[in-house]
Design a protein around this nucleic acid. Structure first.
Lengths: 206, 206
DNA sequence: TGTACATCAGTGAACGCGCGTTCACTGATGTAC
DNA sequence: TGTACATCAGTGAACGCGCGTTCACTGATGTAC
């Protein structure tokens, strides 16, 4: 609640610009205070408009959170792709992808949390029609695809999809717990150690 | 808000009984509706008392959640110990411990979430004095000890603590994601596949 | 060139909600004299 | 045996909070005739 100059309204026909301002404000609030901080009223305050003005652009609070999660998934997929395009043998590249995943979670903890933290329930969003079945399937699929490709390149997997899921789960375990329990006495080499186990994917066992 | 008979107050000197009733009501609410459902007022309603009566037994809402988490950690440790006392070679027993972990998370999802879901922040609880440093350390330590013992019995680990943490993280990844994203197309054999990778702990790599 | 009108980008006040917590209290029961 | 008093287990009303959402509206700007 600052006393700064009142916001200039957008010129006629440019009302859509407000949508971008809302999205940016929501992202800022997410990064600063986590998903709880992203309330309709807080977003409106940040933009400098009244809360009801948001309804012209979003159906409600959930629609904003969904868009934030969607954007974060796209970012993660991008980060993983960068990791996969490094040099080295397939095992190295899978390791790079894993490290890129963990780096994203470490550097963008609030965004990571809104994706995988159980903040919103995809199944429930589907029921309420906030999301289409297609969207529900697509969310995160691109990021998992990158992991699958890296696992496939190893050439030791008999079920690439399942093994990619295994790797993802291991990474998520560390990413998530480091996020919610930073005070835990994490071993110094926990990242390398975990990645070693996950990418060891012993072909004799499957 | 039922119209059932008014609750009989405890006899003089037996006020402590209310504490147990509160704890039980809180647990029931947790299992039915998750941590969000465990509000001071909801607990009071369930017990049949007024909200302020709780303050005689708990310092506030957080104290109740903390006690719930504590009890759940004890349960998990117990479940893991049961898993470890099965027959079979050390690798089988480690697998049994892993399966016990995943079973607990599957059967008590709300309790699991209050332990590992990032619902409350141990670091923050410590700062506010809701919890002692000793308590913070002890929480979950017993469960991790069981995992460590099972890893030690394998005889292939050069750092039992770190490797136990790796196994825990992998298990947590599956437990947590199955909890928050049940609609994901989980491979049928995901449990066995994950446990295979985690307990494979390749000694050549460490 | 003027003017009535439609459109657009928002505003402002109000709704009911459940929450955690505080405060002063009540009414039954045991105990000391 | 009686009675004043302390203790105990709670009650009941109220506080301020921020929330999502609704409703009817305003005031500037472009457009059709």
């Amino acid at each position: 609640v600052s006393t700064s100059a009142p916001r200039a309204r957008n010129p006629r026909g440019e009302g859509r610009r407000l949508r971008e301002e809302i999205a940016q404000a929501a992202l800022d609030l997410l990064d600063e205070g986590g998903d709880d901080a992203v309330t309709l009223r807080a977003v409106a305050r940040r933009v400098g408009i009244t809360a009801p003005s948001i309804y012209a652009h979003y159906s409600g609070r959930d629609a904003i959170l969904l868009e934030l999660a969607d954007a974060a998934f796209a970012e993660l997929a991008h980060a993983l792709e960068d990791g996969r395009h490094g040099r080295g043998d397939p095992a190295d590249r899978l390791g790079d992808v894993c490290r890129a995943y963990l780096r994203f979670a470490r550097e963008q903890p609030r965004r990571y949390r809104i994706m995988f933290g159980g903040v919103w329930d995809a199944g429930q969003a589907l029921e309420r029609g906030d999301i289409t079945a297609e969207q529900a399937r697509a969310v995160g699929a691109r990021a998992l695809d990158v992991l699958e490709a890296a696992v496939r390149d190893l050439g030791t997997s008999t079920d690439v999809t399942a093994d990619a899921v295994v790797v993802w789960l291991g990474l998520h375990g560390l990413a998530h717990q480091r996020l919610v329990a930073p005070a835990f006495p994490w071993p110094d080499d926990i990242e390398d150690r975990l990645i070693g186990v996950l990418t060891g994917l012993d072909p004799a066992r499957t």
